[in-house]
Design a protein around this nucleic acid. Structure first.
Lengths: 161, 161
DNA sequence: ACGATTTAGTTGACTACTCAGCAATTGACT
DNA sequence: AGTCAATTGCTGAGTAGTCAACTAAATCGT
């Protein structure tokens, strides 16, 4: 190993060991593991993955239970083609149905079926268990409030910047 | 809409609007947006995505700069076949090289090339900027320490449970 | 009121993963 | 030593997303 390579390696080692890198890694890792855990549980107990569950949340929390594909795509951080295919699969699984949007013939509204409701209710229970156990419980009361607060601030910064 | 459907809808609406669901959504969303943002920046400025960057971090922070594929897979939350293909692409891009592991002929060690070092150094700078701006800065001093602490506790719970 | 721009959704071709099944090697137990 | 189980990495087939290019509909500027 020559001197230049060694210098490069040292600088790289410093960068790779930086506090920020480690700390940021914690966020990515926690989110990945939690998402994976939920996905596994939902698949086993309800036959849907985490992404479909996220769609059902958006549909069911709306009073009229109708959301456009565009809004879903923005909310889930997917592209419009990603949403098209996701809703295709959900429609095929009998979880949702597409209805034309009154007043805008370009837009498609997505609506849960009765089966969609039923699956969502079971999924929500399983979801709540995992969230409670690995996200809420490990972080005690006051710190939990601060955690969600921090996450909100980060999301705000991302939306604005 | 009949009475049964309406009842199902109301229960679903309650579940979908639960505090925990919203709060957990903040974590997923923050992680997704941050990862996406970093991916875009790295791709534009260094020609690599976020996943390859994560591999380079693991390689460069090791004193001897050699890590087995198995360890990388565990660290990045990928399957062994996922890592095989990722390292294939990185090798093809000239970022890393595979070397046989002394003392275990099943195992393959991955090592950054000189080009890998160079790319990593530029990428680390870009990465640091995004992390500083959207992850560290929005959450002021004391709360930031608590945030990383909470994330650590969550990761610990996930590893153990 | 009409052409130019923007927006919503779809499709084809591609990318990056997963899972299941495999071969090679290692370790553990008699 | 000899076999059985576990571990490492690889491969074929399938899944879930992306991007680029398209059509149809709506909105804007004049």
């Amino acid at each position: 190993m020559n001197a230049a390579t060694r210098r490069g390696g040292e600088a790289a080692a410093r960068a790779a060991n930086s506090r920020r890198v480690q700390e940021f890694g914690l966020l990515i890792k926690a989110a990945t593991l939690l998402e994976q855990r939920i996905d596994t549980v939902l698949r086993r107990e309800c036959g849907i993955g985490h992404t479909m569950f996220e769609v059902l949340i958006r549909l069911c929390r709306q009073p009229d239970e109708r959301v456009s594909q565009r809004e879903l795509a923005d909310d889930l951080t997917l592209t419009s083609s990603g949403i098209t295919r996701l809703i295709d699969r959900m429609e095929e699984a009998g979880l949702v149905r597409r209805v034309p949007a009154p007043g805008d013939r370009r837009s498609v509204l997505v609506q849960p079926t009765e089966h969609g409701h039923a699956v969502f209710l079971r999924a929500a229970a399983a979801h709540a268990e995992v969230v409670e156990r690995y996200f809420v419980a490990p972080v005690a009361g006051e710190d939990y409030r601060r955690l969600t607060n921090a996450l909100e601030v980060i999301n705000k910064a991302l939306r604005e910047g």
